[in-house]
Design a protein around this nucleic acid. Structure first.
Lengths: 167, 167
DNA sequence: TCCAACTGCTTGCATATTGCAACTGGTTGG
DNA sequence: CCAACCAGTTGCAATATGCAAGCAGTTGGA
């Protein structure tokens, strides 16, 4: 039942899967940056993840059923990584974690804006975003209600960056 | 501003503090098990944390202002660890993480019951619990509304354990 | 008064993980 | 045909983890 696990506690089991400095960073970039390829995740990472670490993380996320990998029809070597429902439901975890970080840690303005919008929007906004993720990653159509949460978060980020450049 | 940090992203900064296999386990035991002493945290841990690891984690949690340490008047060597407001506000993070683990990982019944109750109760229950934690750790009185969330979670856990023994 | 048990840790050492940089084998488009 | 791009792999040094034992002090009971 609990073979190989330290305990059957849900928090512990979650930490055994996600409790390191990189796994949730990868999930974050897939969700908020819509990065779907290996190179994309590696080179556009704010934190500069090393290729071997990215490779091992993607492997364990695959093994855990948090993401899937499909061949990209446009390029024989490219793989497309997608979130599963299990992966999509990590959004509330990321949202709470980012809300806490936003409140208590030295967040930069441009990288904090998404956290602020997510925290202000609350669970209702998260659910809407998760529906968009289901469309993007699982192909499940949703009733579109105007501009997507994804687009709004992205636009807010870019607006802050543009404002900073003017200074 | 961001000295020594990989990036100013709130998720990243949170992971730099909490992103390992043990930090949130310690917070969990303080919150849900009300373990306040070193030995208490060490010997009653479900996962069997080693003393050196516990010591380094407590030190970084102190440095980060997530917990505080006070001398125990009943024993010159004992220290009492308490949560700060910053630590108490990790409850929603733990709640989301445990909800995810409860849904997707091989949780045992007795250790999953708290996750279930927390998930069912939602943010309103979490807020109530956080008020109790403020009373227990910060000495901030609250208007008591009958049995505490802490007690209810503990009772539910013990009921499951008792039921299992009968079998 | 003495001693066993308990207190919060520290130390030494083996093993595992991380992080960096270079490299591999293959694909693609011009 | 070749430079640029693709998803990783490999080797190696530095760091972190995990285990067991030990330490200096405190406490409570006989």
């Amino acid at each position: 039942m609990t073979e190989g696990h330290r305990s059957g506690c849900p928090i512990n089991l979650s930490l055994e899967v996600l409790g390191d400095r990189w796994s949730l960073i990868v999930i974050r970039d897939i969700i908020f940056g819509n990065r779907r390829h290996f190179r994309d995740l590696m080179t556009h990472s704010q934190e500069g993840i090393a290729s071997n670490i990215l490779a091992t993380r993607l492997k364990t996320l695959l093994d855990e059923g948090i993401i899937t990998r499909a061949d990209d029809p446009t390029h024989k070597q490219k793989g497309i990584y997608s979130l599963t429902e299990k992966g999509i439901e990590l959004l509330p975890v990321l949202a709470q974690l980012s809300a806490w970080g936003y409140k208590y840690l030295p967040v930069t303005e441009e990288l904090g804006i998404r956290a602020k919008l997510l925290a202000d929007g609350g669970p209702k906004l998260w659910a809407e975003f998760m529906d968009e993720l289901r469309e993007m990653h699982l192909g499940i159509k949703r009733k579109s209600k105007g501009p997507s949460v994804f687009a709004k978060l992205q636009a807010a980020y870019e607006a802050v960056v543009a404002k900073q450049k003017k200074k």
